[in-house]
Amino acid sequence: MLAKRIIPCLDVKNGFTVKGTNFVNLKLAGDPVELGRIYSQQGADELVFLDITASHDGRKTFTEMVERVAREINIPFTVGGGINEIADVERLLEAGADKVSINSAAIKNPKLIDEVASYYGSQVCVVAIDARQESDGKWQCYINGGRIPVGRGLEEWAHEAQERGAGEILFTSMNHDGVKEGFANEALRALSDELSIPIIASGGAGTKEHFRDAFRLGHADAALAASVFHFGEISIPELKQYLRQENINIRL
């Protein structure tokens, strides 16, 4: 049976891993390639590296890091952050990334999804969506690291992304991110049941039970987290053992 995936996410700034709470207040957590290697050895199913510098200098450093990851790590990895055009996608795939995650640029220019999917295939095209549940209960998409609302609903945009050729949706709930009280399971479930491509849950992991619930209640195909792994609050082997005991299909 196909396993549910556990994905540590490494935010990378100037070559170092950082993780923010609610997208601000960054704290240092190590060398991304070393950290990635450790996670891979511990049983991570994939890795995500997000370039949060996205300045021109930062980009070169990040591309060099991608090359190192590709040389040294033997599981699939996705890279994102600062991807604005097809040339960025080409640069990162050539450096050895298996998938690219496109966020703001996809909303600003949805045709980018079509381009990536038709040049490289849907399997490399992850569309990342940051969304917030507003006081009226509706989920709205945001861009630029969660700073700017774009007036598009979560499900509507996710559906368009799928139709344009996205291979996966990485959905981050801004309400849940950094709060460590669980993933946005209701919204996840609605997305997962609506779409025919895999959904990666992101934002809110604090305990092992939260991962179980993202799979069981949220119907997520994969769950992504950062700080709980980086700061050793949850170890991946322990998490995977726990999920297996809970009858969730996990690669051990």
Binding site: M1, L2, A3, R5, D45, S122, Q123, G167, E168, D193, S196, I197, P198, D221, A222, R251
Partner: peptide, 29 residues
């Protein structure tokens, strides 16, 4: 509905019958 296509991720191998799989256990991902 759970059958999403592409089949993407880690899945198990069984009925292994080849020197290609020497040392690989049934059920390996």
């Amino acid at each position: 509905h759970e059958d999403k296509v592409p089949h993407m991720g880690w899945n198990t191998l069984s009925d292994l019958r080849s020197p290609l799989f020497k040392g690989i256990e049934e059920g390996a991902y």
